[in-house]
Design a protein around this nucleic acid. Structure first.
Lengths: 192, 192
DNA sequence: CGAAAATTTGACATGACTCAACTGGAGTGG
DNA sequence: CCACTCCAGTTGAGTCATGTCAAATTTTCG
């Protein structure tokens, strides 16, 4: 069950001893969510960060008009959570729900802090994860500044071909920041 | 000269011994840039990350149509750089130039790696920095998905009042992803 | 002061949105 | 196995926010 996580750590050239792996394992809780279940709901405190072992999730916000805006999808081998709420202890603005049955390994803030204390290398691991995440969010910001809906859609297809096959166009539109109708028209234009 | 950086580290509850501070200092190079000088140019390799001691910078991209899109401003007590290029060793898509005379402390990739090796706490420091940066970029993505130009402008004013006073509206428009004309109209509407 | 840059304004174009209707599966129950 | 509903996706018509291009005005600064 921890295989995927341990391999994910190893991929970043962080080598854990058997003892460290034992410590690591002791800090996480395994959970299984069914399709449509919520991992986090708007207004709650996000007490855990989750590593997806398999499945598919979406992290989204609902605005005053009831519109959903997807911040990110999450799939196996990815981390998800609302870091703002997790770190600040303030209520989350996001919902995270499961688009498929999803298994996760979750760690609480205090367990994570213990883990940092007992296995300092994990600071490095999360630093590397965060670097990658920050690069990708920065690219998304640049894309939102300069690209049309059609360009952003093509970029999405290129970047997340696997996700495209697993979610509805409705969801993709919400991720791209356009309406499903607009996405439909974009797709029609592109298909020519 | 290192005061600000050391205080920045301390602010995150990372306590360095005098020896560690010495090591830290040995890894950085001080540089002074004049207004309008470039710290990084599109196509170059970004070999350093820079901590701004004082001054003001902008990190921006120029698209095919010659439009500039500002990814971020940087001011004293902030880090700037193109992490993608820095980490991957690939050419940068960004320019970083100085909107005011700017003093920075720069660290190369190999020095940073040495620093991580000699002062492992620095992993934690950069992890904390990255967490904060990621939260803020995520908020910006959500804002770009759901907010109008006027709302994004107000949010900008609230979040960066100090920067607003130091840069032209032209720059702010480019940061918000709108034209200077639109910003001018937004400001006119808001002033009523 | 005078040139260059920044900002504002006007007229018009356009990309994306809204609202509403229609289409075509997928699933359900009789 | 058919009729029915439900939902995602598509299409159409009109609207709105923002963009484009050009010109006028104001500010900045040598």
């Amino acid at each position: 069950m921890f295989d995927l996580l341990i391999r994910n750590i190893l991929k970043r050239n962080i080598h854990l001893t058997p003892d460290e792996i034992k410590i690591l394992q002791s800090k996480f809780t395994y959970k299984h969510f069914r399709k449509h279940q919520y991992i986090l709901q708007q207004g709650e405190l996000s007490r855990v960060e989750s590593f997806i072992v398999n499945g598919l999730t979406r992290t989204y916000e609902v605005d005053e008009k009831g519109q959903e805006h997807i911040l990110q999808f999450g799939m196996e081998d990815w981390w998800i959570g609302d870091m703002y709420s997790f770190l600040s202890g303030k209520p989350s603005a996001f919902n995270i729900d499961c688009l498929e049955d999803t298994e996760v390994l979750q760690i609480t803030k205090s367990n994570l802090e213990q883990l940092y204390g007992e296995v300092p290398k994990m600071n490095q691991y999360f630093r590397l994860l965060l670097e990658k995440a920050l690069i990708s969010t920065n690219q998304r910001i640049i894309a939102s500044l300069r690209k049309t809906a059609a360009e952003r859609y093509l970029e999405f297809l290129e970047k997340y071909p696997f996700i495209n096959q697993r979610v509805s166009n409705h969801q993709i539109a919400s991720f791209l920041g356009i309406t499903p109708q607009s996405l439909s028209r974009v797709r029609k234009d592109l298909s020519r």
